[in-house]
């Protein structure tokens, strides 16, 4: 393992960060491709910004226009497949979500990404009448981000249970779950009053409880299964053949490689 160097010395701060580091980002190119130019022209007034990223056209639109734009893309430009649709949480920075739709034109073998910024706590129009795949994708957006989708035929959680609280893909949601999540199965199966009996989740995979002689044996002592650990401990009887004591200091550890 690499040696741990504490980085809290204010005097040396400039040594810890690379001043010349530039976060790499995909270059944005101008729309020159013939097909993509025609796509941008077909959408004329609705596109706020358009550029090419790794051979894909990216279109920024207003969130109110999403149905209109996708309809034109599907019916006039041949983007008949919506392969992916989701959101990104930018609440901390801008109090907005970024929603995107990834469309595929099979005859031209081209892809378009439609992107919009949706203010917090506002709803988006469903594109389910255009793309059937949007049905589940929008339910997932609703489940994971809590974004409401207008005119969706069946807006209900899809991945998490129906009685779940919180939206797990928000950046404010803790990875190991909040209070509700950590007791979910206990509350549901046994009821809240069993929380004390079952106890909190053990998130430490290396945890050893010396008092628990049913689940753990003890290093250096023999304790009977289920015995009270404090009274019944006795030293292990080692032998030279069967049970060898490897704790004995018979080996030598080198400080350095020779």
């Amino acid at each position: 393992m690499r040696k741990y160097v504490p980085k809290d010395n204010v005097q040396k701060k400039s040594y810890y960060t690379d001043r010349f580091h530039v976060v790499p980002r995909v270059p944005r190119e101008k729309v020159e491709d013939e097909h993509f130019v025609s796509v941008v022209e077909a959408l004329a007034g609705d596109v706020k910004e358009s550029y090419i990223e790794i051979g894909q056209l990216v279109l920024h639109i207003n969130p109110e226009d999403n149905f209109k734009v996708l309809k034109i893309l599907k019916e006039e430009c041949g983007y008949t497949q919506c392969s992916e649709q989701s959101a990104v949480d930018y609440l901390a920075k801008d109090n907005e979500f970024e929603l995107f739709w990834q469309l595929l034109n099979i005859t031209e073998a081209k892809r378009v990404r439609v992107v919009c910024r949706l203010a917090n706590a506002s709803a988006i129009e469903s594109v389910e009448p255009l793309f059937k795949s949007a049905n589940f994708a929008e339910r997932e957006i609703f489940d994971m981000f809590g974004i409401k989708v207008n005119n969706h035929p069946f807006l209900k959680r899809i991945l998490m249970p129906d009685d779940w609280e919180g939206n797990p893909l928000l950046k404010t949601y803790p990875l190991q779950g909040d209070e509700f999540a950590s007791w979910y199965e206990v509350d549901k199966i046994f009821g809240k009053e069993y929380r004390d009996i079952i106890g909190p989740e053990n998130r430490d995979p290396a945890k050893i409880d010396v008092e628990d002689t049913k689940r753990f044996s003890r290093v250096g002592y023999e304790v009977e299964f289920g015995a009270d650990y404090s009274t019944e401990e006795k030293d292990i009887e080692y032998s030279e053949t069967l049970l060898v004591n490897y704790n004995k200091k018979s080996s030598k550890q080198l400080d350095e490689r020779r």
Binding site: P168, P174, L175, Q176, D178, F190, I198, E201, P205
Partner: peptide, 18 residues
């Protein structure tokens, strides 16, 4: 046994909880 590598909000941390 323990939730394994899924140390997340969605996995039961050991089936012996239930």
């Amino acid at each position: 046994n323990t939730g394994g590598m899924f140390n997340t909000y969605a996995t039961v941390q050991g089936v012996d909880r239930i």
